[in-house]
């Protein structure tokens, strides 16, 4: 089973790399979808089946579709423009930051104070109880945030015609 984990992890990392380096926006997004699916597989292997399914349904199936929708609507994609933006110099800042993170991870591995990967028993029930128990305020805040979004979308999308005014 461990080999599956490493394969999925490698796919995730490679796909994410391509997301960053690809000049074509839609292709980059498709790589992101692949990365999300691989991530879902990792979740599944770690025993978080519910999170895995939600990862695909919500991120892979809904949010990325909307991203692709918007990018598709942008018209002729400025590949050349993207190329000029992706100059080698642009890598320096993020590269340094990523190196810092890598150093931290390397240090953690080096001191050997890591726990073995445990298969948690968190199921949908546990997630739900956590969400509606200790984190109820967070859920309520999120739903409050969504409600104005809904109303705003309705307001923007409503049909303005002579009759309805």
């Amino acid at each position: 089973m461990e080999i599956l984990f490493y394969i999925a992890a490698a796919v995730t990392v490679l796909a994410t790399l391509r997301v960053i380096t690809h000049v074509h926006a839609v292709h980059a997004l498709l790589y992101l979808v692949v990365a999300l699916i691989a991530l879902a597989l990792i979740f599944y292997l770690l025993g978080a089946q519910f999170a895995a399914a939600l990862e695909i349904i919500i991120y892979g199936g809904a949010i990325m579709v909307l991203f692709i929708f918007v990018v598709m609507l942008l018209g002729p994609l400025a590949v050349e423009q993207e190329r000029t933006w992706l100059k080698p110099g642009a890598w320096v800042g993020p590269g340094i930051l990523a190196l810092v993170l890598l150093g931290e991870v390397g240090y953690l591995i080096a001191i050997g104070d890591h726990l073995p990967i445990t298969v948690s028993e968190t199921r949908q029930k546990g997630v739900s109880i956590a969400l509606y128990g200790p984190y109820i305020i967070g859920v309520e805040l999120a739903s409050m945030l969504l409600l104005p979004g809904l109303i705003g979308a309705y307001h923007l999308g409503r049909r303005v015609s002579k009759e309805s005014r």
């Binding site: 498709l30 699916i37 879902a40 399914a53 809904a62 579709v65 692709i68 598709m72």
Partner: peptide, 25 residues
């Protein structure tokens, strides 16, 4: 006999949307 068979079905049907969307694009 997945424990989350229903969710798996939903996940697959949401991924199926990509074929239509990307195919058209």
């Amino acid at each position: 006999d997945l424990n989350m068979g229903v969710l798996f079905f939903l996940a697959m049907s949401s991924l199926a949307a990509y074929s239509v969307i990307i195919g058209g694009w």
